[in-house]
Every structure is written in C-alpha cells, then in structure tokens.
C-alpha cells in the first residue's frame, strides 16, 4: 500500500463513495497490465486518470468523472 494510492483513493471517495478503492483496483488490474492499485507509481497516474474518465463516466456523471480524472493526473 503506497502513499500515492492512498491519496488517489481518498480523492476518489468523494466521487465514488466507499467502493472507490475497489473501482480503482479494477481499473489498474483490468486496464493497466494487471498492476495492483497499491503498487501505483507516479508514472501510472496519467493512464489511471484516462481510465477513471472512461470507466467512471459509466458510473457517475461525465463532468464529475472528468473532474476527478483531471485531479488525478495533476497529482
């Protein structure tokens, strides 16, 4: 469990609620070569942000998904 993944999870809770971490774990394992969310590195953020925008738009409002994506990529 890294500090960076905790920060991303904490930020995402504001958009996805208590299941945010599960959502993020799924994005990293399914779309980012199977890496564990807890092993998230700084150079993974851009890719994760992209999938937050794509997959997140299916769950929450597109505007909010884009908003979170922008925040993650700028971390």
């Amino acid at each position: 469990m890294s500090i960076l993944s905790d920060k991303v999870a904490a930020l995402s809770v504001n958009y996805f609620g208590p299941a945010a971490r599960k959502f993020l774990e799924r994005q990293t394992t399914a779309h980012m070569n199977g890496i564990a969310f807890d092993d998230l590195q700084k150079n993974d953020l851009a890719e994760l942000a992209k999938w937050i925008n794509v997959s997140g738009s299916l769950i929450i409002d597109k505007v909010k998904a884009k908003e979170l994506s922008d925040k993650v990529v700028s971390m």
């Binding site: 809770v13 996805f16 609620g17 299941a19 599960k22 769950i59």
Partner: peptide, 14 residues
C-alpha cells in the same frame, strides 16, 4: 446520493 449510487453500482458490477 451520487456517491452512494456509484458505490452501489461498483459493488453490483463486481
């Protein structure tokens, strides 16, 4: 409400 719905949807999809 949106956060609750999002979590619910994530859990349901899983």
């Amino acid at each position: 409400f949106g956060r609750m719905v999002a979590s619910l949807k994530i859990m349901m999809d899983m």
